[in-house]
Structures are given as C-alpha cells and as structure tokens.
Amino acid sequence: MKIFSEIGSYLILLKNVFHLPENPRLYRKKVLFELRVLSLDSLPIIAVISIFVGAAIVIQLAANLSNPIYPRWITGFSSREGIMLEFAPTMINLVLAGKIGSHIASEIGTMRITEQIDALDVMGVNSASYLILPKIIACVLFSPVVIVVSIFLALTGGWLAGTLTGVISSYDFIDGLQLDYTNKSLIISLVKGLVYSFIISSIPAYRGYTVKGGALEVGRSSTKAVVESCITLIVANLIITNLLL
C-alpha cells in the first residue's frame, strides 16, 4: 500500500511543480544556472564513459563475430545499433542518475531540513515549482545534447579502438555504421533520453522535497533517490523498447 501512497504523493508534487511561475524572469535565470550545474558539468564524465565503453563494445563484438560466416560489416552495424538504442540513452542516464540524482536530492533535502523551503512557502513562493521545475527543464532540454554527444563519442572511441588494435578495418567498421541507416534509431534514442532525464530529475527532487529529519535522513533519501531512479529507468526502458521497436 505504501508504494501507492508514494506514487500519489509524487504525482501531487508534480502537479504543484507544473504551475505558472510567480516571476518567469527569475525562473529563466534559474534554468540557465541549472543547465550549467546539472548538465554542462556532466559532459566530462559522459565523454569519458562514452569513449571507453564504445571502445570496449567494438572490441568485444569484433572478437565475438570473428567467424567468417558473419559479414565483415556486422561489427560496425551492431555497435551502431547497440550504442544508439541502449548505451547512449540508457547507460548514460543510469550514470547521470547517480551524479545528478544525488545532487538534486541532497540539495533540496538540505534546504528542507534547514527550513529554507519553509521560508520560501511563507513568502508565498511556490517552492515546489521554484526549486524543481528549473531542474527538470534543464535536464530535459539538455538530454538531446547528451544523447548525440554520447553516440558520437562512443562510435568514435569504438572506431579508434577497433582500428588501432587491428580487430576490424576502418573501412568495414564505417561500412557497417552506414548500412541501412534510418533516423528511426536516433529518434527512439532521443525519446528515451527525454523520458529518462525526466525520471532522473523528478524522482530525486521528490525524495529531497519530502525528506524529514536531519543530515542522516538527507543521505538516506539521496541513496533512495538514486536507487529508485535507476529501477524506474530500467522498467521504462523495457516499456519504451517494446512500444517503439
């Protein structure tokens, strides 16, 4: 029963979040601030993970598909589909769930226990909207950038690793990348990214906003936020994959 009560509270909070802002100018500034803190600052870790995991995927696939019965383009083709459909949207957002999720939950949670949220409420500010909406907008707006950057770097990392280690020729890899390419995979990837970025920003915000107690509870809610975001993301991934493919 508790899970239904939690989902209900989460939906009520979202109703308050999507509310007309008291001062749109101030919200715009806050969105720009959150874009820097939550999104731009995440680019280095996205870049590192994308390059190295992309490289590992290509080496692994090339090794597994070395049998001559497989066409030579299969490694490039499989790498492209795997990276575009699963790695870039799902794996990267799982990583971001840890980085961004814990940041959001602990920031809002600390504001809650130090009465800063109460101070906003007493002033007449819709604290849920003021604190959470800019974070969600920043994450969702930046999501396509994250996906495209991650795909590009993962494929580049794969191409570099494959050609430098000699497991696949540059021609075969690029041939595989271009084979039967349509924008469908990219669109699915972007749609997944938008949904996941909403999940990894709104669930931690809910956990932080509803925290009660002291510093210990903020830490616990932060951990809870990351775990719940990851599980929700994985379940959403299964549903979207089934619906869109």
Binding site: T110, M111, T114, E115, Q116, D118, A119, D121, V122, M123, G124
Partner: peptide
C-alpha cells in the same frame, strides 16, 4: 492566501537563509 503570505515576514530559528 497568496496575497496574505506576501504581507507576512518570518524569522526562522536558524535564519533559514538561502545558501
């Protein structure tokens, strides 16, 4: 109620200043 809240000032126990 929103208008009323704008006419209320409150000092919290620990200040509740925005970090």
């Amino acid at each position: 109620r929103h208008l009323l809240r704008e006419s209320i000032g409150m000092v919290f126990q620990n200040g509740a200043l925005f970090d």
